[in-house]
Design a binder for these strands. Structure first.
Length: 287
DNA sequence: AAGAGGCCCTGATAGC
DNA sequence: TGCTATCAGGGCCTCT
């Protein structure tokens, strides 16, 4: 669910809360996430100090004082909740996708610190935790992933080389993490709208200008989303004011039947399925 | 060997 | 109200 901007917001708030803090205890209530929580998980985390909370693509990366590294992926429905000890009213949802109240079900992992704890909730269990032994192995863990949109490596030369001999549609390309990592289903639609490109367009038909537009708008959309605090969709309500605001900027996502927001465009937003996922686009100005 | 499709899961919502 | 079907912000695996 969360795409790069949302994961970045979680990372920031996590870093603020737990950096230099020592983990007292870990409780695993359900280890059957997408990847089974390994047997050494508790031992790797408990009594360790959090050195830094970092991120690559949609992965949260937690550096521990032992030299080991914990990575967290939120999947489609993972959320992290922060609860002060003996004070359930100050519960803070560090993510975007649930109510501000701690859900009753699916609280799979608790990480206890001195004065607060973190709770990982994930109804669909597509998220996971992993322990990585070294920076070298971390690099290896992510080596199948393409550069982030902000990376200088994500440029025209790289773009054209990657799409050589490829026959997929441009929407499918944008959510291919091997091509560029961090873009998911929502932002892919938004990027293609700004680039004025039809999501069905085959990548072999993209000219230089198209590629440059995609590169430019990928950076722009994601940076802007981070600036706005991410996107909060569906029925998310938050009482602490930390709700994301980017959903107000959606030009096409979940706007089926509405009129195109581009100046002087008479088009209408439509939804069609590409590579098993919904795509939203203007049926007129995206060529 | 790239690409399409299925699958892992639960919950919210729509339609009958 | 209660059923069923569909869809959801991800990513990996298998088949062709």
């Amino acid at each position: 669910m969360p795409e790069l901007p949302e994961v970045e917001i979680v990372r920031k708030s996590l870093d603020k809360k737990i950096c230099q803090k020592k983990v007292k205890k870990v409780i695993i209530r359900n280890k059957n996430l997408r990847i089974k929580i390994p047997n050494n998980f508790r031992k790797s985390i408990e009594k360790k100090i959090i050195k830094k909370v970092s991120r690559f693509s949609k992965y949260i990366i937690i550096y521990l004082s032992s030299g080991k590294i914990c990575i967290i992926h939120l999947g489609m429905s993972g959320t992290i909740h922060f609860i002060k000890k003996n004070d359930r009213k100050t519960l803070t949802n560090l993510s975007f996708y649930n109510s501000p109240y701690l859900p009753k079900k699916h609280n799979h992992v608790e990480i206890l610190f001195d004065r607060f704890k973190l709770i990982y909730n994930d109804p669909r269990r597509f998220g996971f935790f992993q322990i990585i032994n070294s920076s070298k192995n971390l690099k290896r863990r992510f080596e199948h992933l393409g550069p982030e949109p902000f990376d200088d490596k994500f440029n025209l030369v790289y773009f054209k080389e990657f799409i050589k001999n490829k026959n997929k549609r441009v929407k499918d390309l944008l959510i291919d993490q091997k091509f560029v990592s961090g873009i998911g289903n929502i932002y892919a639609s938004e990027i293609l709208f700004l680039a004025k490109i039809n999501p069905f367009k085959k990548v072999k038909l993209l000219n230089n200008k198209d590629c440059i537009q995609i590169i430019y708008n990928s950076k722009k959309v994601l940076l802007n989303a981070i600036k706005k605090g991410g996107s909060s969709i569906r029925n998310f309500k938050n009482t602490n004011g930390s709700q994301g605001k980017f959903q107000d900027n959606f030009k096409v996502y979940q706007r089926v039947g509405s009129s195109c927001k581009r100046n002087n465009c008479e088009g209408e937003i439509v939804k069609k399925v590409i590579a098993n996922r919904s795509s939203f686009f203007c049926n007129f100005c995206q060529k």
